[in-house]
Design a binder for these strands. Sequence first.
DNA 1: AGCAAAATGTCAGCTAATTTACACTTCGAT
DNA 2: ATCGAAGTGTAAATTAGCTGACATTTTGCT
Lengths: 225, 225
Amino acid sequence: MYEELKYWYLRDHKLFRTLSYSQIKQLCIITGFKKASKGEIIYFSSSDVPRIFLLKKGNIKIVAIDDNGNETIKDIIQKGDLFGELTLETDNKVEEYAKVLSDDVAICSFLMSDFEDLLLRNPTLALSYTKFVGLKMKRIKNSYANLISKDAKTRLYQFLKDWAEQEGVQNGNTVVIENYLTQNDIAQIICTSRQTATQLLNEMETNNLLQYNRKEITITDITQL
Amino acid sequence: MYEELKYWYLRDHKLFRTLSYSQIKQLCIITGFKKASKGEIIYFSSSDVPRIFLLKKGNIKIVAIDDNGNETIKDIIQKGDLFGELTLETDNKVEEYAKVLSDDVAICSFLMSDFEDLLLRNPTLALSYTKFVGLKMKRIKNSYANLISKDAKTRLYQFLKDWAEQEGVQNGNTVVIENYLTQNDIAQIICTSRQTATQLLNEMETNNLLQYNRKEITITDITQL
DNA sequence: AGCAAAATGTCAGCTAATTTACACTTCGAT
DNA sequence: ATCGAAGTGTAAATTAGCTGACATTTTGCT
């Protein structure tokens, strides 16, 4: 069980440990570098040639618009994460874009075709990349399994635990998370209504499980969640 | 096992199409072969060394047991599909097994380590495999997205459409699917209760959208779903 | 052929969570 | 410093779908 969680929390920087500096440089030289600040929207799926992106700094959310014009959060991308067409399949019928959550972000990107060439020339990297995608898949599977079989409260607890593990600053059993999400964002991530999320968060606050404000979330005792 | 036989087992998988006959023969990676019949349970995750499996014939479901002893269907595997630890990550704490759904199945397997060696020696194959895993991930994402944002009826409709597309025999707008699933199986796949699934199927039958029986499902007009 | 087990059909509560609706608070821009 | 927009708080009405509790039908087995 704990082993599983460890896997799950192993964020994706892992891939780049297998890449040498020169390899990374090679990728980044080929491409551009982009900075953006809070609230900005970055379109990346429909645009020109297929690319793979690497978030160097900050946080963004990947948002999709469905047929009815509803926004749904597909993913939260953190510093060091790759995003874009990781499956190496060009398929641009989905309308997705990224929205900047933190004060500012830095994104570097490279061409998918270049990346494919690199993989062909470097089987070890291809293998690592496959494992990396597999890890991502495992993560997605886990989070969806949670969404489907658990109630809203359990989902919120699980989300907070994940978040704390990934980004929280721990001090004893107390964990402080920099809160760049609105309650609405959180609600969307755990797939519930904004109102339900608000209620649950307030309930947790009255039960002294955490303190919530727009800047940060302090989890009183992470072992209690 | 004879070389020719091994070749036959791999030949028509899209993954290995990039390889020539002689290359495939050289692989010699198939180390296991197994036949089983309806209802049989095949354990594959916990056992000895990590393997990757290829289903040559029939249908199976991958079932997991959670902490409370509840069965959940993780995947339906059809003829030609690979299954097992496709992510190449050994991770053996999940209690999973396969149950044979069709009258009989033929499964061949190879060692994950052999497969990794193979990928390292064949960059093109490694890239194909990476895309293959990516495609699988995309599918999973899509089906989960459906599960979460749609109601039970829509989920059932979507499931039937997918199933029809994958395995149905079309004649005009009428599609006949060989039905190797119970209503309970269907319910589990679309994540609802057996009763709800039954009700929905009967409702569809009275609305002349389909005819259901244990052997086959006939969708009157696939464009109506 | 006979019987137990599995699969299917049906229905009445029950409940979590969505929806609707509105008030209050905080933030950011001018 | 003000004002509109975004974010948060709260509550009643409504509902999809689960649970439990059966009856009925079909299947596989000896």
